[in-house]
Write a protein that binds this DNA or RNA. Structure first.
Length: 424
RNA sequence: GGUGAGAUGCCUGAGUGGCCGAAAGGACAUGUUUGCUAAACAUGCGUACGGGAAACUGUACCGAGAGUUCGAAUCUCUCUCUCACCGCCA
């Protein structure tokens, strides 16, 4: 959620930036919010004045009672009836208008950075970096969903039997490969200064609101009604919520956390499209990196995180490209997002494996994650996160790109983690 | 699942109707002093939303919501959560 004060002071810039996101009703909503804000302040002033008067009288009555002037006390009491009525009325008005402002404000997406390219669809995303050579596969090369059957690596049908579509069962060397990837990613992250966290993989409602999954996207999460808990769609949710309602020390910046968790997504509405094999799952594994930083540093750190994820892909010897998302393809909460995509040689297409975003103060405003600056003023921190990395599509690309007629080669860096060099 | 206790500021913890935005201690910050990796002393130290050029000042907040009252951290009701013990169990 954007900060009202910020909008008030920077209206033109806010509108300019929202235009990049193709947010249609920006001007209408912002104007109405600002008008209501003026009204709100007027009402609050009136309410405060009435309350101040009532408080005064109450104090006087107390003193009169103490010295035994009962008559005068009674006289003072008679005045309070009217004040109480007014107070109630103002409070209700205030509540109403605050709700309206909030309602309008939550509809407004984060203001994109001015570096975000204009555009509406994924085709408008800007390729900022490309690395590696797309491999040429042998004549009988297969997509990963056939390779996994051939080498007995993943049983999708078994997953259907146990849970449902989108819950694969990994076996043998593939299970080991998954474990290897998780450990590799965590080792690299901790070496880079990220503190490893093992968070709960269920969260309560407050946490869902904190990172913005609720109230809008609740259909995307698995909900356990009996205890009112949600399965996390990403470690971002529990890890970022560590910093909900806290005032961190400025000297603690940058706060760097990483976490491996399974992720659960209902993916409602995406049936039938690009869902073969490992491309889109209800449950998958991911290592996430999260940073809470000083506002002045967040863009510098975003680049650092993007570079870090790119390094991982280089080490895995996967061809990849980095995209700067255009206004139309960015998420609601992001101010600037890089997507990293690996080349899937048998599918001959790019697969998104990481999304690295700077949320500026959009998320921390909702979370109330603040710090005291040098002047002793509390202000919102900036939050960033990125996948580093999501497993299934990495596995898909590894299987497809590294296949030979006799087996699948494991990248060097993973061999110590896997304990084998080839799947055959 | 059963029984009991509780929810106060960054933390511990006092506070049973007006003198309480809240004692005390700790932590933290600044300064002084002695010196040495620390201690002593002094001062400061909640958050949010308003008003004001500023000094300053108004209002709200003691788990959440409602109520009683001129006046509520303190009384009543509802809800949520936490802890302890027992039972069951990884």
């Amino acid at each position: 959620m954007l900060q009202l004060n910020y909008i008030r002071d920077n209206k033109d810039e806010v509108l300019k930036r929202l235009a990049i996101k193709n947010f249609k009703d920006a001007e209408a909503i912002i104007n109405s919010v600002l008008e209501k804000d003026v009204e709100r302040r007027n009402i609050q002033k009136s309410a405060d004045d009435v309350k101040a008067e009532a408080n005064q009288i109450a104090k006087q009555i107390g003193e009169l009672m103490k010295v035994g002037k009962k008559d005068e006390a009674e006289k003072a009491k008679s005045k309070t009836g009217e004040l109480k009525l007014k107070e109630k009325q103002f409070d209700e008005e205030l509540k109403k208008i605050e709700a309206e402002i909030h309602q309008a404000l939550v509809q407004v997406p984060n203001t994109p950075s001015l570096k975000v390219p204009a555009g509406k669809t994924p085709e408008d995303n800007e390729v900022v970096f490309e690395h590696g050579v797309k491999p040429t596969l042998h004549a009988k090369a297969q997509p990963h969903w056939e390779l996994t059957t051939k080498y007995n690596l993943i049983d999708f049908e078994l997953g259907v039997k146990i849970a449902g579509a989108g819950f694969p069962v990994y076996k043998g060397k593939c299970a080991r490969l998954q474990r290897a990837l998780i450990n590799f990613f965590l080792d690299r992250a901790t070496a880079k200064g990220y503190l490893e966290i093992q968070p709960p993989i269920v969260v309560n409602e407050d946490s869902g609101y904190g990172t913005g999954q609720l109230p809008d996207k609740e259909g995307q999460m698995y909900h356990m009604g009996i205890d009112n808990l949600y399965l996390i769609p990403t470690a971002e949710v529990p890890v970022t919520n560590i910093y909900r309602d806290v005032i961190v020390k400025e000297s603690d910046f940058p706060i760097k956390n990483c976490a491996y968790t399974p992720c659960f997504r209902r993916e409602a509405g995406s049936y039938g499209k690009d869902v073969r094999g490992l491309n889109r799952l209800h449950q998958f594994d991911k290592v996430e990196i999260v940073q809470i930083v000083h506002p002045d540093k967040s863009y510098e750190i975003l680049e650092e995180m993007r570079e870090y994820v790119a390094e991982l892909l280089k080490e895995l010897e996967l061809p990849f490209r980095t995209l700067k998302l255009c206004g139309g393809d960015m998420s609601f909460a992001s101010a600037l997002t890089y997507d990293l995509e690996v080349w899937s040689a048998a599918q001959t297409r790019w697969l998104e494996v990481s999304s690295v975003s700077n949320f500026e103060a959009f998320q921390t405003n909702r979370l109330k994650c603040r710090f005291k600056d040098a002047n002793g003023k509390t202000q919102l921190a900036h939050s960033l996160n990125g996948s580093a990395l999501a497993l299934p599509r990495i596995v898909a690309a590894l299987l497809e790109n590294n296949q030979t007629e006799t087996g699948i080669k494991i990248p060097k860096v993973l061999v110590p983690y896997c304990g084998f060099e080839e799947i055959n």
